[in-house]
C-alpha cells in the first residue's frame, strides 16, 4: 500500500486471523468429532482429542444410512440443474444481447425479477404446480367452460413431477441470476466479432455455436460449477419435492440423521455424514476458487 503503515497491517492480519479461526474452527471440530467412536463420545462428551475411528464411522455412514445413494442423487440433480440453468441462460442472454427487436427489455426484466423472490418463499404453491405441471393447460382450456362445450367434460390433464429428478431440478432453474451474469459478459464481447461472422456468411446459430460458446468457455465452466454447488446445497425444495428415499438428496438425508429418537444422538456419525455431504462441493470450491471468483465478479464490472 501507500504509506508503510505497519500498525494497520498488523490490525488487518489480526482481523484476517480472526476470520480464519471463525471459519475453520467449526470445520476442525467436525473433523475431530468424526474420528471419535460413539462410546468415546458418550464417555467424554465434547472433546478435542481425536480418536482413531474415522474409517469405522465412514463405514457406518456408508452401510447404515442412505447417504451414499443420496450423494449420487445430489450429483444427478446438481448436474441437471447446472446444465439446465446454463443452457437456459445462454440462449436467453444471446437473444437479449445480440438481437434487435421488441420485447427484449421486457424479457430481461421478467427474468431478472425472479432473483428477488427465492423459491423458498412460494414453496406451497410451487409444490402444487409441480404436483401437476399441466395445471395451466387445464385452466386455460376450461376457462369459461370452453373444453366442456367441446369435449363434454372439463379438461383434466395430469403430469406429476414430484419425487422425480426433473421435478427437483427444474424448479431450481427458475431463477435468473445466471442470465444476469451472462448478459453482462456477452456485452463485453466486441460486436465486430459478430459482424465479421455475418460477412463470412455465418447465421446467428452458427455464430453462437462456433464462436460465442468457445469464447465463453471459461466463464461458463465457472458458472456451471457455481450452479452445481448452489443446487447441491439446496435444502427446502428437495425436502418437500422428494419424499421417497430413492430421490432424497444428501443434505436432506444429513438433516434426517438428526431424527434418531431413542438414544443420545450419534454425533460422531452425524459429523462424518456432514463431511461426506460437504466434501464434494468443498473440493470444487477450493480447486476452482479463482475461476469461480472471476465468474461471479463478472457482473460487477
Amino acid at each position: 500500500m501507500i504509506e508503510n503503515s505497519r500498525s494497520i497491517d498488523r490490525w488487518a492480519t489480526a482481523i484476517l486471523l480472526c476470520g480464519l479461526v471463525f471459519v475453520l474452527t467449526p470445520m476442525a471440530f467436525v473433523i475431530v468429532t468424526a474420528t471419535q467412536s460413539y462410546e468415546e463420545f458418550l464417555r467424554r462428551n465434547f472433546s478435542l482429542i481425536p480418536g482413531g475411528h474415522f474409517a469405522e464411522n465412514l463405514r457406518e455412514v456408508w452401510t447404515r444410512t442412505d447417504l451414499p445413494r443420496q450423494t449420487l442423487n445430489s450429483i444427478i440433480v446438481g448436474a441437471i440443474a447446472a446444465t439446465g440453468r446454463i443452457a437456459l441462460a445462454v440462449t436467453t442472454s444471446y437473444a437479449v444481447v445480440f438481437f434487435t427487436g421488441r420485447g427484449r427489455g421486457l424479457v430481461y426484466a421478467l427474468v431478472v425479477a425472479s432473483i428477488m423472490l427465492p423459491l423458498e418463499l412460494m414453496i406451497i404453491t410451487a409444490y402444487q404446480v409441480t404436483a401437476n405441471v399441466a395445471l395451466p393447460l387445464n385452466a386455460l382450456a376450461n376457462a369459461g367452460g370452453l373444453w366442456s362445450a367441446l369435449a363434454g367434460r372439463p379438461l383434466d390433464l395430469q403430469w406429476n413431477l414430484l419425487d422425480s429428478y426433473a421435478g427437483i431440478a427444474i424448479p431450481l432453474m427458475a431463477q435468473g441470476s445466471c442470465t444476469l451474469i451472462l448478459v453482462q459478459f456477452f456485452r463485453t464481447i466486441p460486436p465486430q466479432l459478430a459482424r465479421a461472422a455475418i460477412i463470412d456468411g455465418a447465421g446467428p446459430l452458427r455464430f453462437l455455436w462456433d464462436i460465442l460458446l468457445p469464447l465463453s468457455k471459461g466463464p461458463l465452466t465457472a458458472l456451471g460449477i457455481y450452479m452445481f454447488i448452489s443446487a447441491w446445497i439446496q435444502y427446502m425444495w428437495p425436502l418437500v419435492a422428494a419424499s421417497s428415499p430413492a430421490r432424497t438428496m444428501a443434505v436432506v438425508g444429513l438433516a434426517r440423521l438428526q431424527e434418531e429418537g431413542e438414544r443420545i444422538p450419534d454425533f460422531p456419525l452425524q459429523m462424518t455424514g456432514a463431511i461426506l455431504v460437504t466434501l464434494p462441493p468443498l473440493i470444487l470450491i477450493a480447486v476452482f476458487q479463482r475461476r469461480i471468483v472471476r465468474g461471479l465478479t463478472l457482473s460487477e464490472k
Binding site: A131, N160, D163, S243, S244
Partner: peptide
C-alpha cells in the same frame, strides 16, 4: 407398500396425489 418418511409427508403427498387423481 411405499414408505413416505413420516405421517405428515404421507398425508401431504396424498393430498397432492388426490388432487391429481394419483
Amino acid at each position: 407398500c411405499m414408505g413416505q418418511g413420516s405421517y405428515e409427508t404421507g398425508m401431504q403427498k396424498a393430498i397432492a396425489a388426490y388432487r391429481s387423481g394419483r
